[in-house]
Nucleic acid binder design. Structure first.
Lengths: 356, 356
DNA sequence: CTGAAAGCGCTTACAG
DNA sequence: CTGAAAGCGCTTACAG
């Protein structure tokens, strides 16, 4: 063994070929299950591979094949945590990512993860770099503007989560409309609450807009007094929810009978703020969330919310992306069903244990 | 534009060079910040890149550079869930992965994720495939045998989590010894419990062995009656913990005053089983966990446990791996400090609110 | 400062 | 069935 190849003693297909006494083409064919090699050739290659513990270099394969078998996922990373629960809630992103990973796995793909900080200046730049390392990208909620998406989509296929499909990209989301409809019905019809507020998420979120729209329409139609708008503007975070309540109370505003929060995180903040002022949930004010994050059932009282099938959302996103990568056109706007989860924060009595 | 390049209209550095009227070498240099190009050259390249929305192909770069700027993480995926909380507990893996991702990010690396099912036959094969796509691997708890690790480590550097360093691989873990020591002291000295049991994790886990060893030594030294062994054998899961309790109770065995569980998950199962039999925690039997998973503080009663710095564990693992990838030798056995978190399941009165 | 050319480790027509 | 060779898209000495 004269020349010390490169950095590591990293083996190449040439080493295997030499050892097996065949050409690199044969090695490659055996490894790929292409053609019909003579049994003996096959044996020799396989033995050499085994003895050497050889593994093909993924980059070289990708370059040659034009397929990396890698999809990228980009999401936001929380910075500091104001509420202890805030941190946990971020984990819902991981649930989605698990869904993506599981489905990828089945197709022989791996998942490249990259987070960007909330205050990150050049998200586009990072996303673009990811594009170069993958066959396609899945972007979490509100990562890029439509322009940014178009730009990235010119490099690799893009699927957004909880966004809006664009001419260049596809989208997978949950059925906010039905979820909010069921929630409002439960509060206004079942519980007969006369006044309800919508504590919003970020204004630029499609999810939030959809929820707000249905809330307003349905609650009004059912004859309830509605509160929403500037003084009820949150940002999906617990801190955001808490500060809205604090401001309202400080201003001496009377709270409505029920507060519909744009997310579970928001509800967590609201319940926290309410508890601090000695306002009881649900006796004085009912509170609901949206998402059904893992911690929702452990809150006191357990949170009534709308469950979004996070894991399926991820799985579906991969599925859509994969078919696109494979050159198959698919539905550019997939909508997944949601489910109302009634617990106690809405005012219902403690339901059957281990319920749902 | 005559010939339709390849599959996509995927741009290459040649397209940029043509547009900018320079050689591909110049494009590459500008993009890499190498050399001292004339300002005008720089300008023209940058403009062409911008106008074309060009992004370099990661595989080609990796092949040429000998560096993919990707580390792989392999972990186990839960299949079905017996307890609703089981599912959540799996998320602690994600917390570690977040730590890895965060640190990678700082170094310009991305993280390739791959899960394997619990019953997966050829984990080694999957791990090997990952090795080919990355510059180094981080393996979660008990993924591979020492032989398997050695094999993979001959391809890329390997760091294990909560394992044992081998001649070929490095390891990062938490200080189980100190954690268990503090826990036993709290139970046997502070609470004066006379009888304590250790409900174990998987027998083949280094973490479990370390915890068991210290438990036995310290509890005995403090004069407590000890129970552990075959009839107290769990497997880290909630289901495992619950079934141990069920068996014991069915056999008419009297429970000790305190049960030290090998993990929070186990404690969750134990508390569940106890509740079903009407046994009160901590009045009748105290229960403690190990890990401090997010849900631990939401259990009823809130779980006294030992917090492992999961996120730092991940960050540290990347750090160790990165320095190894960079050719720097580092400590092959990093130990991170843990912290006793006293809540109510040990028998302590409700501590100050918003504690910790 | 800049370009022509070799090389990274594979895969895959194309001949034999 | 199998081998020689070209090509995938970059980077980087090496000359100029």
């Amino acid at each position: 063994m004269p020349e010390p190849k490169k950095a590591k003693g990293a083996l190449t297909i040439y080493d295997v070929a030499t050892r097996a006494g065949v050409s690199i083409a044969s090695v490659s064919r055996v490894l790929n299950g292409q053609g019909t090699p003579r049994p003996e050739t096959r044996e020799r290659v396989l033995r050499a591979v085994r003895e050497l513990s050889f593994v093909r270099d993924g980059s070289a394969r990708a370059l040659s094949n034009g397929l990396k078998e890698v999809v990228g996922v980009v999401f936001r990373r929380g910075d500091e945590t104001l509420f202890e629960d805030e941190y946990e809630s971020f984990l819902y992103i991981d649930v989605i990512n698990r869904g993506i990973e599981g489905e990828s796995h089945r197709r022989g793909f791996d998942v490249l993860m990259s987070s960007v900080a909330f205050n990150d200046e050049n998200v586009l730049q990072r996303v673009a770099a990811m594009a170069g390392k993958t066959d396609g990208l899945i972007l979490h909620d509100r990562m890029l503007s439509a322009v940014g998406i178009a730009q990235v989509a010119s490099i690799v296929p893009v699927v957004t989560l909880a966004g809006t499909p664009t001419p260049e990209s596809m989208n997978v989301r949950c059925d906010n409309e039905s979820g909010m409809r069921a929630l409002v019905r439960h509060l206004v019809i079942d519980h007969r609450y006369k006044s309800v507020a919508y504590l919003s998420g970020r204004g630029d979120s499609p999810d939030n807009r959809a929820r707000a729209r249905i809330f307003e329409a349905d609650a009004a139609a059912a004859g309830a007094k509605i509160e929403m708008g500037p003084s009820w503007e949150g940002n999906y975070s617990a801190a955001g929810g808490a500060s809205v309540i604090a401001s309202l109370l400080d201003a001496g505003t009377a709270l409505p009978r029920a507060i519909v929060c744009a997310s579970d995180q928001t509800a967590i903040g609201v319940m926290h703020a309410l508890a601090q002022r000695g306002i009881r949930v649900p006796q004085d004010v009912a509170v609901t969330g949206f998402d059904d994050v893992p911690v929702a059932r452990h809150l006191r009282p357990p949170l009534t919310t709308v469950r979004q099938p996070m894991q399926e959302l991820g799985a579906k996103a991969f599925e859509v992306l994969h078919s696109r990568i494979s050159g198959v056109a698919g539905d550019p706007d997939v909508v997944l069903p949601v489910q109302l989860v009634v617990r106690e924060s809405c005012g219902c009595a403690q339901p059957a244990r281990d319920g749902e």
